[in-house]
Computed example of a mutant assay.
Amino acid sequence: MFNTMLGDMADLPSTAITRAMAFDLIQKYAAISPVQAGKLRCELGAAWDYAMDAGRLPEAAVNWWRLILRGKIRSKGKTIEGKNIGVVKRVLTEDEIGELIAWLPNFAPIITDVLMLYLWTGTRGSEIVGMSGTEISEEGGQVWWTIPKIRTKNARHETATDQSVPLFGRGLTVVLRRKKLYGDGFLFPSRHKVGHIEQKYVTEQVFYRQPYSQIRPEQVRPRLTVTHWAPHDLRRTSRTLLAKLGCPDSVGETILGHMLPGVVGTYNRHQYDDEKRLWLFNLSEHLESLAKRFEI
């Protein structure tokens, strides 16, 4: 990113960078690619932070990258088939969910299983692909997936804890099958490196199957019949279904791994394990009923 975006500025001494120069660089990219501009600003800010901490910049140096355009770089949303469709937060309809579940086996098994877990657990993609057999346990006849705090988005919060996810239905089937195959190792191992597959790989595979994807157009492959969605939209869809089923917000947010806000989050240390079992079971049953609409 630095090699391709800094241009002539790359050859300047750090102390020569002014606020105006920093602003002009980021603003130039923000006009054409806001997301990439935000990443560049973030990485430059981190580089300056490190240099200042290490004493490689004067005491009076200012990290302009942390100060310019704060909160002012906005994504223009997705562009599909040359048309900007804006910032889309997609929630699949119930018919679309049933149709998609029936279609999922057209993906490679590893992608099918990840997408199934998005729907059946509502967890984050990074948490799913990083799942290991050591995180799976059984207690009182219930199989649990315990996501270590360090692997969650709440790792930086002192009061955060490990996230317990009760498994049901097709989500349970996926996990038990993969644990039988891979034991205590990563349940979604990569074929190309040591470790697990990346979340972005799943996103790329979903886009590759969209009817509007122009990636390797000469290759014939099944195209999705439920379109214009990304894996993260399945997490949003599960949360919406939970709300429709009557799940209390506090439980629904805990299922997603969100920390409860304000005073509630500060004083309420209840983990809602019993409630999660109830509502994820209800979600599983509802997903099954939607899938049956499209069974052949």
Rank of each mutant, 00 (worst) to 15 (best):
V129H: 02
G246M: 04
A61R: 12
V220G: 08
Y182D: 09
T225G: 00
V87E: 01
A54M: 15
V202W: 04
N84H: 14
G195P: 01
L176T: 11
D273N: 02
H228Y: 06
G140M: 14
K193H: 03
K78F: 06
G265F: 14
T237E: 00
L181D: 09
I255Y: 08
L40M: 05
P222C: 11
K276D: 00
G77T: 05
A108P: 03
V62Y: 09
T134Q: 12
A54C: 08
R90Y: 00
E295N: 07
E99K: 06
E198D: 07
M116D: 07
W229H: 01
T4R: 02
G86T: 12
G122V: 06
L172T: 13
M259S: 13
E139N: 04
H258I: 15
V251H: 01
I80E: 06
L176I: 12
K83D: 04
A60H: 12
I296K: 10
V264I: 15
H192A: 04
Q163L: 15
F188Q: 03
A102E: 14
G122H: 05
N154D: 06
I85D: 02
M259R: 14
L115H: 09
I147G: 11
V165P: 14
F107Y: 12
V91L: 09
E127I: 10
E139K: 02
M52Y: 14
T18E: 03
R177Q: 07
P58L: 07
D95P: 03
G195M: 02
R124E: 12
A20D: 09
T227N: 04
T225Y: 00
L187E: 04
E127P: 08
Q163F: 07
R41T: 10
I73P: 11
E59S: 13
S250K: 06
R56D: 02
T121Y: 04
L290T: 12
G130N: 12
N3H: 06
A160N: 13
L104Q: 08
T93F: 05
G38S: 10
D95V: 00
W103G: 05
D8H: 05
L44G: 13
V251Y: 00
H270W: 07
I97A: 04
H196K: 07
